[in-house]
Design a binder for these strands. Structure first.
Lengths: 240, 240
DNA sequence: CGGAAAGACTGGTCCAACCAGTTGACCACT
DNA sequence: AGTGGTCAACTGGTTGGACCAGTCTTTCCG
């Protein structure tokens, strides 16, 4: 019973992850050609249809460019890949580390969150402001379990981002949340300095209700910046 | 010759776009079940593999959740979809308009761009700073063609975002660039107020070279804010 | 030497079948 | 009536092979 796996991952999903990591890790250099579908199918002993599904997903992630009749070309992910690939980059064994990506994500979170709080104070409805204030109390009464705390905290921020009325912020928020959650120990990292400061959350909700956009932005920025590590970054590979 | 289309879009791509728009447009409500693959294949007169490729992409975009044996469930894109879907949301006939999305994207661009300029001044190498300064001149000498101007301008900003050392910013930048370019008339919208102000670009490059992070951030924010429309937003559907 | 034709690739689509999970109805037993 | 198990009818997952539709390379003829 050394390997009694219950979880079964689809063949095309495994293949997608494998090829994605090869591209992000640099094993498949940009500008080069991806192995032909029939050849990949033979190499991994799977059907060509599974290969096609994986390649189609690579195409959607803008990691490759396929052309009917021609060869499938590997793109430079630094120029084409979208925000949703952050997790994959950390998984690849070359380039930035998980800590690097987590730090970058926290920086982006602070930047977007502060502006979202500002816009929320400017544009959200009175009902939305009341919901935000109520969510602070719900968060304050969340159980001692870190997972619960994390969940209520994310739900609270989601209300603010939704209240900002900016769909780009909302989508980026989604990308950050379910891109980082599985990677970093978010509750532990954020910890007491940010998540447990209920009083600051109350003040932020108050600024939003009072339409004090400037104050909301400053407080949000300060609150979110608490968790951004200030240490200088050390790259693994120092590529480029 | 009423419909002499030359463009041939792959069946799975058409199907993906169609289903995506149905979900984003609300025709397929969240929580409901997506039509079974075999049924979709029969309905559209295509092979089931084409349907599968489309559904697989919907899954990757976090618009649906598929489960082996069970039904494929439609998710709430407001809670799960990532930044790369902004273009699709604008394409859907319900909800936000293209102008709404463009405004949101410009707001996000200003937010990210300002912080990227700040971080670039703090962290980029001397060589990168020199490249940025050189790129300003390349942009200044770009042809009268708006497309060229746009291209050099984007290339210049890409250098700054890369110089910030924040991969999340870089990926978000990618998403914004090739998500908005095909939708909005970016060169026309940005216009003289921002793109043609070479002197401001020179000053920003100077701040970065001089490591004046605060000044770089302020100038970048002001520069990028010029193109953000200030008009209040009017929603089409006023959903929620 | 130039260019057109032929062949060998490439990805795109289809058909038909079967494997592998989930669901729910049905029936025997308690 | 309630409980439990069985089974048939779904669902998605995978396979094989065939063919269409483009691209690229080679070859051969003018």
């Amino acid at each position: 019973m050394t390997e009694g796996h219950i979880r079964r991952e689809a063949v095309s999903d495994q293949l997608f992850a494998l090829l994605r990591d090869r591209i992000l890790g640099g094993a498949l250099p940009p500008g080069g050609a991806l192995t032909a579908e029939r050849e990949l199918a033979a190499e991994f002993g799977v059907n060509r249809h599974a290969v096609r599904e994986a390649v189609k997903r690579l195409q959607q992630a803008r990691l490759v460019e396929v052309s009917h009749g021609g060869r499938t070309q590997v793109l430079d992910w630094r120029r084409t890949a979208g925000l949703e690939l952050a997790v994959g980059i950390a998984a690849a064994d070359s380039g930035p580390t998980v800590q690097d990506i987590a730090r970058d994500a926290l920086e982006m979170r602070a930047c977007i969150g502060a502006d979202a709080a500002r816009l929320c104070a400017l544009r959200c409805s009175a009902r939305a402001a009341a919901e935000i204030a109520a969510a602070v109390e719900a968060h304050a009464q969340a159980g001692p379990d870190l997972t619960d705390l994390d969940e209520t905290y994310i739900a609270w921020w989601r209300l603010i981002v939704e209240g900002s009325g900016n769909i780009a912020y909302l989508l980026a928020f989604n990308s950050l949340v379910d891109g980082m959650i599985p990677v970093a120990d978010v509750p532990a990292d954020l910890g007491a300095g940010e998540i447990l400061d209920v009083e600051a959350h109350r003040r932020l909700a108050g600024h939003i209700s009072a339409r004090e956009a400037g104050a909301a932005e400053l407080l949000a920025r300060e609150l979110l910046a608490r968790s951004v590590p200030a240490a200088p970054r050390a790259r693994k590979g120092a590529r480029r």
